[in-house]
């Protein structure tokens, strides 16, 4: 076998390894989703969405859980969006190459790797106890905001960096100030990417259980929250609570709740894809 043949063989082999690697991930995901749908789909109906938790699995529902999840989601977005995007703009556009800024950057990168339960403890100490918010939706949302801030900051910086330098130079060449350049050129051009980052970060927050349990989210809440200071429960906690019950019917409930949670995540990701697409077509210099 000559060298060229050998190389072609290696090439082919690597292709197959690659295909195998991609297929195995998708296959496992497909089996998992198929299993969940098979178990839970028949349980999923309007009653299930509109019922309060109950000791009878077949009467039990996720009304307070999905409303709680939407509340937490909304507040988390409201809080983390301005702070994260603001920090991203600062670090990318204004920050000088000082020691302090290097320190900031290293720490933000590291924060993205901190286990989520640690954020829960931080939230418990600062928001729940020191700031006296109690185990409220607001305390939970602030905790989750901290959790996803590093992701938003990194995504913002990446999308700002992707704006061609020539645009910046042209804008400043025409006499625009730095702020005008950012507001009128950079942000519109990078907004699709920023939004995608924010939504992906938020859809990660939707699935978080550990930090919310630490902050004091409850398992049984028989009323829908009316304001950000109310106690709350979320879907992942309801699911967690159900899978640990001895009765098999609760496991079916859990599967149905997982379908709803997957639906919310999928919808968020769909919005992200749509926004990215829309903003990409909008920019024409």
């Amino acid at each position: 076998m000559n060298n060229a043949k050998k190389n072609r063989l290696k090439d082919k082999a690597f292709e197959w390894v690659g295909i195998f690697a991609s297929v195995i991930g998708i296959l496992i995901l497909a089996i998992f989703i198929g299993f969940i749908l098979y178990m839970g789909l028949s349980r999923l109906d309007w009653d299930f969405m509109a019922s309060l938790p109950s000791r009878f699995a077949e009467k039990s529902g996720i009304y307070t859980a999905w409303i709680g999840t939407l509340w937490v989601l909304g507040l988390t977005t409201l809080i983390s969006f301005p702070v994260g995007v603001g920090a991203g703009i600062y670090l990318e556009e204004y920050a000088k190459n000082s020691k302090l800024n290097t320190l900031l950057e290293v720490n933000i990168a590291n924060l993205a790797g901190v286990p989520s339960v640690i954020y829960g403890l931080l939230g418990l100490g600062i928001f729940v106890r020191m700031m006296n918010m109690g185990s409220s939706i607001l305390a939970g949302a602030l905790t989750l905001s901290l959790l996803i801030l590093p992701i938003i900051i990194v995504a913002t910086r990446e999308s700002i960096r992707a704006v061609p330098g020539s645009i910046r130079e042209a804008s400043q060449g025409l006499g625009a100030t730095k702020w005008q350049t950012i507001w009128n050129q950079i942000l519109p051009a990078s907004f699709g990417g920023i939004l995608t980052g924010v939504i992906l970060a938020v859809s990660r927050a939707v699935g978080e259980t550990a930090p919310l349990i630490v902050v004091g989210a409850l398992a049984y809440v028989p009323f829908a929250p009316r304001g950000p200071m109310d106690e709350f429960t979320v879907l992942p906690i309801q699911i967690f609570n159900w899978v640990t019950r001895p009765q098999h019917e609760f496991v079916i409930n859990a599967a149905a709740a997982i379908i709803v949670l997957l639906g919310i995540t999928l919808a968020l990701n769909g919005v992200a894809v749509y926004l990215r697409h829309r903003w990409q077509n909008k920019m024409n210099w």
Binding site: S135, I213, G216, A217, L218, A219, Y220, V221, P222, F223, E231, N241
Partner: peptide, 8 residues
Amino acid sequence: SRVTVGVS
């Protein structure tokens, strides 16, 4: 009444 139960 508003009774809430957690599982800490």
